[in-house]
Simulated scan of single mutants.
Amino acid sequence: MVRKRTVFASQGSSLRREIKALNDIGDDKSKMQELLIEMANQSDNPDMLKAIQEAASHIEAIRSLKNKETKAADAYDAIKDRSRNPSGSGKPFEA
Rank of each mutant, 00 (worst) to 15 (best):
S64I: 00
N45C: 09
K50W: 00
D44P: 09
R63D: 01
G90W: 04
E60N: 09
D24G: 14
S10C: 10
D27H: 09
R16G: 05
T6W: 05
I25N: 08
K68M: 06
D27C: 02
E94I: 10
R3H: 14
R5N: 08
S89Q: 11
D81E: 12
K4V: 11
L65T: 04
S83Q: 12
I37Y: 08
K91Y: 07
G88S: 05
S30Y: 07
F93Q: 06
S30I: 06
A9P: 02
G88K: 04
R3A: 15
G90N: 06
L49F: 11
S43L: 01
K80R: 11
Q42R: 12
D44A: 15
L15V: 11
E38D: 14
S14H: 15
S30V: 05
E60S: 15
P86R: 12
A73N: 11
N67Q: 09
A95Y: 02
D44L: 10
S87D: 11
E54W: 00
L65E: 08
K66S: 09
A75I: 03
A56I: 01
R17N: 15
R82Y: 06
R82T: 01
L15P: 05
Y76I: 14
T70D: 03
A40G: 05
I62Y: 02
S57R: 05
R17S: 11
A95I: 04
D27S: 13
K4T: 09
M48Y: 05
F8H: 11
I79E: 07
M48A: 06
A55N: 03
